[in-house]
Amino acid sequence: MKEASRIAKRTVFIGGLVLSVAYVLPFVLVFLNAFKPKYDILENPLAWPKTITMDNFTQALQKMDFYRSLTNSVIITVFSVTGLIIFSSMLAYYLARNKNKFTHTTFLILVASMIVPFQALMIPFMSIFAQFVAINNRAALIFFYQGFGIALSTFLYHGFISKIPMDLDEAAAMDGASDMTIFWKIMFPMLRPVTATVAIVNALWIWNDFLLPRLVLTRETQTLPLSTYLFYGQYSTEYGQAMAGLLLAVLPIIVFYLILQKQFISGISQGAVK
């Protein structure tokens, strides 16, 4: 019996190991080839680099305008996520604490809207907002993300706030605290676990988003996914440079993930299961 379970465990372990390798192999491939000259890649993409060259990185950094794209990605993600946290927590608080027909309907519309694919409105969307986009496309994009992200974020906050007893805000109101003070001083600090979830779920989405930025942004304001796509399209036969570019593109988020792994996993599972 014991022997059998040990063999079973070992089989599971080997299975896990093989699968883990399969899941990471594409990234390893990118990593290995990013340091090779072009002809070494064609000769054997799986081999360890014989001669290590940093030239690929110098080229990729410059051609994909890496620092500018990274800055754009950071600015757009940080402002969008901060805005979403503020707006959706406040809206959710309002909807959860004022139960009437209006708030009930609003909540239902928000939930139902989550099924609408962006593709179903992107065509009129671009003509409606053409002027706004022309004035400041980064600001426009951040504004759009508020609209597209508010439903899920409000939904997540709403579920959590509904479980917090009303006595708490009522007691504070008795003491003469204003609605704003009650929310920001008492309620918001209690929402920290949801805030983490909302931040992670939205940051991943916005950081990696492609379709909307593709429609809205220009060369000067492009984010990392856009510049990676354009760069690869132009230089895909310069394998070494392409791989260096891809490595640069995936690095920021992987580093972030390895540091905040626990928060990521719990954030994702909370965000999905609700």
């Binding site: 699968l19 883990s20 899941y23 990234f27 990118v30 990696n208 492609f210």
Partner: peptide, 24 residues
């Protein structure tokens, strides 16, 4: 550790993943 590895592709956007696999 396994869980960490299995989750990694999900962090990266579809465009970058698509391009990586185009090379593969």
């Amino acid at each position: 550790l396994f869980r960490t590895f299995f989750f990694v592709p999900n962090l990266i956007g579809g465009v970058v993943l698509g391009v990586i696999w185009q090379f593969i």
